[in-house]
């Protein structure tokens, strides 16, 4: 039974946050619906009237060129960026997981301390095997007690991605999750995504790499209003 967590306040001013009842649920397994989303940044309209929905089990790739607003769209969805109009409705009982361009982990703390803090932040009971298992899957078990600052860029990214295996959430919002990962790590991430989808979760991600999976696409170019060309000098 999906139940909306009342403490989630995404885009307070514009979003109508509603609760899903069981009758609706049988008809449609939407976890996130976006209607008529129009977003401005620095006076430029990035996209207008964007409408899409993310259902249980979906893998949605946000496509667009550099600067077209992919990251901003994800930040709109999780409520960080607030300069938008339209409707964003969440039907989830945990907070979405967001992985952006920033490290997401503290460089001064060890991998274990970082992940233990994450678990505590999300009120997940801490089992030592849980963290060790996920870190071992990421291939970082030998570095478990090393400070994150001593790790390479790709290893830090993997530590950040470890949260996907630790925290409960139906929707993952991943901004360029494949950047700076090696082949083994890409396979690891893909297997996590597949497992998440098999469990009814869904993933919204941006990437310039071609991913050979059955998935939906949201092309930002489809939602650019025609006036933009005329407005820009």
């Amino acid at each position: 039974m999906l139940e909306y967590c009342p403490r989630v306040q995404f885009g307070k001013t514009h979003a109508t946050v509603s609760r899903m009842n069981t009758k609706e649920m049988t008809e449609q397994q939407a976890l996130l619906t976006v209607r008529g989303l129009t977003c401005e940044r620095g006076g430029n309209e990035l996209f207008a009237g964007m409408t899409f929905s993310v259902n249980s089990g979906d893998l949605v790739q946000i496509e667009g060129s550099n600067g077209s607003g992919k990251s901003t769209l994800l930040r709109c969805l999780c409520g960080f960026y607030k300069d938008w109009e339209g409707e964003i409705n969440w039907y989830i009982d945990h907070h979405p997981l967001y992985i952006g361009h920033k490290a997401g982990v503290s460089a001064d703390l060890s991998i274990e301390e970082n992940l233990a803090y994450l678990l505590a932040l999300h009120e997940v009971p801490q089992l030592p095997q849980l963290i060790e298992g996920v870190v071992a899957d990421a291939g970082l078990l030998v570095h478990l007690n090393r400070a994150v600052r001593e790790l390479s860029e790709g290893q830090r990214k993997k530590v950040n991605l470890c949260r996907l295996g630790l925290l409960p959430s139906q929707i993952w919002l991943l901004d360029e999750p494949f950047s700076s990962l090696d082949g083994v790590a890409v396979d690891w991430l893909m297997s996590m995504i597949e497992e998440h989808r098999a469990n009814g979760g869904s993933v919204v991600y941006t990437s310039h790499q071609a991913i050979k999976l059955d998935q939906k696409h949201v092309r930002l170019a489809d939602f650019v209003s025609e006036t933009i060309g005329a407005c820009t000098p």
Binding site: R7, F80, G100, G104, V105, L118, L121, H122
Partner: peptide, 22 residues
């Protein structure tokens, strides 16, 4: 500053934890 640069602040805001106590 450091938490903002590292993106830890974002993760703290996007969590069920009460930001007040954090």
């Amino acid at each position: 500053q450091r938490d903002d640069e590292e993106g830890v602040l974002e993760q703290q805001i996007l969590s069920p934890a009460s930001l007040y106590f954090v």
